[in-house]
Design a protein around this nucleic acid. Sequence first.
DNA 1: GCTGCATGATTCTCATGTTAATCAATGAGA
DNA 2: TCTCATTGATTAACATGAGAATCATGCAGC
Lengths: 176, 176
Amino acid sequence: MRNMPDKTDSDAKQPPEFDSGKTKSKRPLRDRRRSLAIGLLRAREAVMSHFRPILAAHDVTEQQWRVIRVLSEAGQLDATELADKASILAPSLTRMIRSLEERGFITKHKDEADGRRVLLQITPAGEAIVEDVMPESLKVYADIGVRFGAERVDQLLDMLEELAALKLDNGSVGDE
Amino acid sequence: MRNMPDKTDSDAKQPPEFDSGKTKSKRPLRDRRRSLAIGLLRAREAVMSHFRPILAAHDVTEQQWRVIRVLSEAGQLDATELADKASILAPSLTRMIRSLEERGFITKHKDEADGRRVLLQITPAGEAIVEDVMPESLKVYADIGVRFGAERVDQLLDMLEELAALKLDNGSVGDE
DNA sequence: GCTGCATGATTCTCATGTTAATCAATGAGA
DNA sequence: TCTCATTGATTAACATGAGAATCATGCAGC
């Protein structure tokens, strides 16, 4: 099911001037320019729509959940490591730390050795959230695995990882 | 100083009870529960990182670009259609319309037939942005196509579309 | 013509993304 | 030891995501 003549004419018409100049397309291949960015966005949105109710039921956002889960699995981490593992930006994490600490889900204290670092750790209350959410989360993924195909999910994950690792050179735009 | 992808063991340890139940994997198949949500997020982030410089150079955000491009391709649209095609929430679109109109990229006027609808249209200034950005955008996607493989991109897009179309029943959380 | 409901858009509030600037602590070198 | 560049974290400012509430219009039914 490679390049079927895609019956989804999501956006059939577009100004011809974008095509006329460089008509080097050997096959339809629905415009790729829109695909990846939007495709990833929509797919992610679809997946998350199944998790949000679960998280909302426990009054945590998706990002808060990522932080809690990472801390639960990795133990004590400094802010930079945590931000990286949870795919959250440092400024966001700073804000989240404040609220998560106030809610008693994590603890924060300075590193004795390096005064710049902030060490984060999960609390029992935080672990409790994980205990509650994780089973439901696994259920959703299992459901996806059944409907989408377990190997295909794996295959998709491989491609996503590889795509994320791609470092293209933007040699024509980075001239500040 | 972004977040360096430090290859330090991303996540090596995790409770075994999540794996023991369904060990039908012919290979490790790294834990699936974390994968999709995070994988899609990281992949998208990676892709967008190549576009942001282009968009920033023209002083438009990623979302503004989506709105402008959709309007450029589809012509006149009402807010709901536009929000759907651009994958943007209605409240966000309302805010964006204000600023985009102030900047002269789009025009807004009420529908004569239905006073509730707001019709949006792109302006020549908006088209100019498209003319500027689109070529560079295509260049980036072409680059990705070369490095990742054109058919594989197509294949990935197919899976993303299919995943986005998956409507799982969350029979245990949506009780109303 | 009025009522009640549905729909489209807006507003509000809070949380996060994104970038730039700033603060604090560390460490190398004069 | 003092200076300065670096690093880790925070703050600020703006834009968007997400959900709930509100407003305005349209419409069916009486």
